[in-house]
């Protein structure tokens, strides 16, 4: 069986710095895969390489058996690979509704856009109440919800979330992780990047541990949680 996403010997630079050193991993359809590691390990750079924001120096990225190396971000987005960037990055001067419309930039049919918006409100009812509020005026948790809802507008085959729990209150974090699991159950494959390793591994089918641009460990979520090294380094 071919993988949904397959990354082989990926090398990327962040400025002059080599951020990824020949990393290999794959994601199968329907999985939640977590990428954990400390600050500067290369987690965000991995996502940015996949979504086209960072140029790949060498290596191969295949999505559904097609190479997507160094396609432009909008071309990758059109393949329904959707990246929710670190820090949510909603458009602060735009309303919730406009943010959602932008998420569906690849879609022409207005009826489909409406339908997806309604579906998003099922996960995040608060957004329906805030429809005409400017994104920048919402709380961090609401912004994260908007960022995920906006990504759903593109009907992702692969949803990549970069630190969705960052800076949020524990109760909101639980809520977000619950929704990630629900989304996965609805059929969306998820690549999750997190510093909150325990949470991320708990919901993951499989996980990879990145350290200074290299994958040093991989396994099922359960294996990694129980691994002593991981416990010491990330779960203490």
């Amino acid at each position: 069986m071919t993988h949904l996403l397959e990354v082989k010997n990926l090398v990327s630079h962040y400025g002059q710095l080599q951020a990824l050193r020949e990393i290999n991993f794959h994601i199968d359809e329907g999985e939640i895969v977590s990428l954990i590691g400390g600050n500067g390990a290369g987690k965000s750079t991995t996502l940015k390489s996949l979504s086209g924001l960072v140029n790949v120096t060498s290596g191969e990225i295949k999505f559904l058996d097609k190479s997507i190396v160094n396609l432009l971000p909008h071309q990758i987005s059109a393949m329904n690979i959707t990246h929710v960037p670190e820090g949510r990055r909603i458009f602060p001067e735009m309303t919730v509704e406009e943010n959602l419309y932008l998420g569906a930039f690849n879609v022409r049919d207005k009826a489909i856009i409406k339908e997806r918006m309604e579906k998003g409100f099922e996960y995040f009812p608060i957004l329906k109440k805030r429809l005409h509020q400017k994104g920048g005026t919402m709380s961090g948790g609401e912004q994260q919800m908007l960022a995920i809802a906006r990504a759903l507008m593109n009907q992702p085959k692969l949803l990549m979330l970069d630190e969705p729990s960052m800076g949020l209150a524990p109760i909101i974090v639980d809520q977000i992780f619950e929704i990630i699991q629900e989304l996965n159950k609805s059929g969306i494959t998820i690549l999750l990047v997190e510093q909150n390793a325990y949470h991320a591994l708990q919901i993951a089918d499989r996980g990879y541990v990145l350290q200074t641009g290299e994958i040093i460990l991989s396994g099922t979520g359960k294996e990694l949680i129980e691994n002593d090294e991981i416990r010491e380094a990330y779960l203490a």
Partner: peptide, 23 residues
């Protein structure tokens, strides 16, 4: 739609690109 794309690129070019906007 394209007016919205212009505003999006003005506010956050990278994120606009992630939404599928051809910058």
């Amino acid at each position: 739609k394209w007016g919205m794309a212009m505003r999006a690129v003005a506010q956050d070019r990278d994120t606009a690109a992630l939404m599928g906007v051809n910058v």
